[in-house]
Amino acid sequence: MATTAPPAESTTVWTKEDAKASRKANNKLHRREHAWAAAFMAPPVIGWIAFLLFPLGFSVYASLTNWNGIGNMTFIGLDNYTRLLQDQYFWRALWNTVFYMIGIPIGLALSLALALALSRKIRGRTFFRTVYYIPVISSLAAVAILWQWAYNGDFGLVNQALGLIGIEGPNWLMDPTWSKPALIIMAVWKGLGYSTLLYLAAVQAVPRSLYEAAALDGASSWKRFTKITWPMVQPVTFFLVVTNIIAGSMIFTEINIMTPTGGPSWSTASLVWYVWNQAFRNLQMGYATAMALVLGILVLIVTVIQFRINRANDFSID
């Protein structure tokens, strides 16, 4: 579609002049099209420059200063970055953030199992799908408030339920050992419906003939799972792992609501929570910016590594 065809009615012989005129008209038309296309693309491009590129550049500069948000920005070189390397709170927050990722494989395994169950002809599966999905659409703030109360050591729903089967639950959010698992359990509960839905679509998309052929060959159901289902849903697994890691690295809301001081012995503070705390509570803007940049770079590196590992999903844009 590079050039528009000559007008259909030009059954007469084309002269050089005709071609020239047509090209001229085309150029004019093209210019008009370019102008409109540029105008249509302008808003997101402006947004990209003003709210992404510019802040990012500013971040890089601010991270090299001892800026407190109001006063002068004194250039201090890489001091913020060396401070970060020695800051045990930073490392603790990083460790906590990585620890939360344990929830990802747990959530994926559970949701794949659920999707396999829901792909069968089970009565009420639409109902189940809806129920499992409701936590996903509930606001994280409300869910965090609810679970904070549910984790209450004496009156909380969780320990009451555990009491029914004779387990005396810990005081979850007040206990340095159990605070992180508590947050992981909640995250799995909240995200389960979403991954299940994606897996369900993928499982249902597997051609039946594959299973039939495998069954004819006498493959066990476990074999059918490992050799057919698992590879066929692999793109969804990849998507979920990547998006969950990105989202997980930004975990903040539930931390700030359920453990406003970073948890017992700082056991729940996440990286973003620490950045936010340093920037907006302690007004260590320069230092916080350096940490935020490190966070962004870490996320980028992890994402790139995952794409590398997942060569099968080649990146193509058209």
Binding site: P55, L56, F252, A292, L295
Partner: peptide, 16 residues
């Protein structure tokens, strides 16, 4: 733009 997490941008945006 999808690769840049919001927390990385929030401080400069706030200042702006």
């Amino acid at each position: 733009g999808m690769m840049v997490p919001f927390p990385t941008l929030m401080i400069p945006q706030f200042v702006m």
